[in-house]
Structures are given as C-alpha cells and as structure tokens.
Amino acid sequence: MAVQSNQWMLFGIDMRHIVQQWLSAWRELLLSARSPIRQRLDEPVMLYRGDAKQLMQGGKPLSGNPQNLSPCTAHLLPDELVLARTLNLPIAAEPELPAVLAMEVAAASPFKSDDSVYGWYETGRDVQSIQVTMAIASRPAIERWKRESDFAAEHQSDGDPEIWAEANGALVALKGFGEARREQAYRQRLMRAGLLAGAVLVLVLVSSVVFAIQQRSALERFEDLQSKVQLESESVSAMRATLVDANETVRAANTFVVNYPNPHIEIARLTELLGDDVYIMHFSMRGRELRVRGRAKDAALVMQTLAQTSAFATVTAPQAITAVGNTGLEQFHLDIEVESTKADGDES
C-alpha cells in the first residue's frame, strides 16, 4: 500500500488531492476571514458588546462614526455561554477542514448535535500546521439569552442579527444566524469586483492587440518603404556604376588621344606651317613621335620654324642637312615630338 501511495506523490504533494488543495487555496484567498480581499470588501458589521458598540470589517475594527449604523449587526455572546477550543491541525487536512471541524464539534460539544452551533477562525499557520480557534454554543441557550437579555430586547428591530463569540481573544461568528446576509453581500461585491477586474483585463488585452496591430501595420509600411528605397538605391547604384564606367572609358579615350594624336591633324599642321617651296618626301608617326624627311631651299629655316611651333615639344635632326646635287635644294631629316595635352579629368 505504501508503494501504491508513493506513486501519487510528486515533490511531496499527493496528486490525488491536488484539485481539493487548489480549491482550498482559492477559498483561503477569497472567502476566509483572514483574506486581505475580504478585509477590504466585506460588509461592515456593527458589533454590540454589552453597552458598547464597535464597527467591524473583516473581523477587524474599522475606523468610522459609530452613529452611522451598518445594515449588518452582530451581538457578542457572554463568555459563560461559549465553549472555546484551539486546535492545531496538519496542513494536509486543509482541503477537508470544514468536515474535520464538524467532527471535532460532534466529539467535543457537551450539547446535543442538533442544538450545537459553532464557528471558527484561523489564527495562524506554518508550513506544517494550521491553528484554528473554535467557539461552540447551544442554540437553545442563545435563543433564551436573546429573549431574556435586556440589551438584546432593545435591538429586536435589527432583524436577524449575527451572533459572535470571543474565543481565546479571537472574534468568531457563529454559523446559522444572520451571517448569510453579509456573506451574500460580500459575494455580490466580490463578483462585481471580479467583473470589473475582468473588464479592465479585457480592455488591456484589447488595447494591447490594437497596439500590436498598429505596430505591425507601421512595420509593414516601413518594410515596404525600405524595399522601395532599396530598389531605388540599387537603380541609383547601377546608374552610378554605369557613369563611373563611362567616365573611365572617356578617361581612357582621352589618354589614348593624348598618347596617340591624330596623324591627319599633324599632317595638316605641317602643311600649314611649311611653305610651297618645301615638300615632304616621307612622313611616319608612332604615338607622339613624328619622323619627317623632305627637301627645301632652306632646311635650317624649316627646322627653326617647326621648333618655334608650340604644338611641338622638341624638334631634332638625327642626320645632317645635305645639299641635293646642283638643284639648290637641301634634304633634311627631322624627329618631332608632339606636345602632350592633358586628358579630361587630369589635374591641371
């Protein structure tokens, strides 16, 4: 049996009672007298102690004007009518606490089972046990006290008041009297607070969903804009690359033009510079270097004229000027270097 019982244990918790423990935890949070929620939402009770009265809420004194009577009233039983008991119960008995206390009343009450009324209040707990204070009384004795007490007779107009008892310093409401009205009012107030909290939660969730949708829409618009900008930037980059290629081509063409001048232009320039008495017998051109062989009446003047031309960087005679028989002409050989012009894009 021990082995079979251990099969249901997980981290020291009996999984067969997990539902009861879960419900018990919610009852402790919402319905127990020690609940902080109940201490804020419970119906105020005007407690009459002999000739004195005190406004209570959630089992604790409530600051306020005692003249403002609460719709709920309670009368404190004399100590001689109350049997007080303090119980230390194991924490495992919490899910079945009402049944355990009912059995304790049946065993400890000196009154008949039909005549016994009781109430209890949790006064403390630790990890292993729960401390409960109980108040047990006789219903016939309470009814007789209500009839015979002068104080109780003064409050017959209160309807069905609650009956409280003081047990070991704790105030305990006895079950079976007027506490049902306060319990119903508390549950209604708790339900309204729960509905309000649920509505607020739904509103927060709806607001979060709307905000998320708006942010997603903004993100999609941003992604579309980013895609368009990326496409445009790619087009601009392509155009820029094409422009760079074109500039490189132009620069290469300019460099070629600088390094390899047009021979037709140079021939036309020589024709313009030389007179009719000068004629060219041989013309060759390699890059910016010209080689000219010709005849003229004054070859030295031809060389001087070409050397003074700004279009030519240098003019040299690799061979001496020689006379051509008795023709009166001189033959010349000239090496000419064309002046270099800067290509577009070069620094000046």
Rank of each mutant, 00 (worst) to 15 (best):
S113A: 13
A108G: 00
D79Q: 06
R27S: 14
V204I: 12
R125I: 05
K60E: 15
G176W: 01
E337I: 15
E80P: 03
P44L: 12
I37N: 01
A343T: 11
E232F: 05
R293Y: 09
T86M: 08
G345E: 09
H155F: 09
V250E: 15
R221E: 15
A52Y: 06
A25R: 07
G275S: 13
L81A: 08
M281F: 00
I13C: 12
E154A: 12
T309E: 14
F312G: 06
A299I: 06
M56K: 01
E28L: 09
V210H: 05
Q319S: 11
A313D: 14
V204G: 12
L190V: 05
N262V: 12
R40I: 05
Y186P: 06
V209N: 07
L23K: 05
E183Y: 01
A268F: 08
L30Q: 00
Q319F: 11
Q7I: 07
D115V: 04
G12L: 08
L171N: 03
A323K: 08
Y121N: 11
D276V: 05
V244S: 13
E162I: 07
L101T: 06
S217F: 02
T123Q: 07
G287S: 03
G169H: 02
V127A: 14
M103V: 09
S208Y: 05
T73I: 02
S5T: 06
A102M: 10
R27N: 14
P161W: 06
Q7T: 07
K53I: 05
S237Q: 13
D277Q: 14
L55Y: 04
L190R: 04
E248Y: 00
V315M: 02
T305V: 11
I265S: 13
Q319I: 01
V202Q: 06
L203N: 04
R251C: 00
F256C: 00
F211A: 11
Q331K: 08
Q304H: 06
D335Y: 02
G325M: 02
Y118R: 01
A300S: 10
